[in-house]
């Protein structure tokens, strides 16, 4: 029985070490990333890995409430991503004076000189 508990300890410790290294690599990407969406993707992935670490701790330390912390962290991470996306879309549209509706992607493409499919049909 001693041996199997040691095996579980080794498994969880290895998983925690690997996840820590991956979080550091994701932080490097979120600093280097050229665009704002690259940074948001990296931060979202850091949140995923922190949820995994919290779940591993909840099993390791035999604490019941850390699973609740996991769930709340997932909700707040999702909320943060949605708010960041809305804020940066609004900032960009305000800077470029584009109307904020569903045709904003078409406006962006039209400013770059890409012809949309509908215009060709009308011609």
């Amino acid at each position: 029985m001693e041996l199997i508990e040691q095996a579980y300890q080794v498994l969880m410790t290895g998983a925690l070490w690997i996840l820590a290294v991956l979080i550091i690599l994701s932080i490097i990407r979120s600093v280097l990333g050229p665009g704002i969406s690259d940074r948001i993707i990296a931060v979202n992935m850091i949140g995923t890995m922190i949820i995994m670490i919290t779940a591993i701790f909840s099993v390791w330390m035999d604490e019941n409430y850390l699973a609740d912390v996991c769930l709340i962290y997932a909700m707040i991470s999702f909320l943060g991503v949605v708010v960041l996306c809305k804020v940066y879309t609004g900032v960009y549209l305000q800077r470029k004076h584009i109307k904020a509706d569903l045709r904003a992607i078409e406006d962006n493409l039209a400013k770059q000189g890409v012809e949309m499919q509908e215009e060709e049909v009308q011609e």
Partner: peptide
């Protein structure tokens, strides 16, 4: 998937070299 959709919409709106 919802957050992925939001990020992809942000990228499609704000990327200057999407074309």
């Amino acid at each position: 998937p919802v957050s992925g959709h939001m990020i992809s919409r942000l990228e499609a709106m704000t990327d200057e070299s999407l074309g």
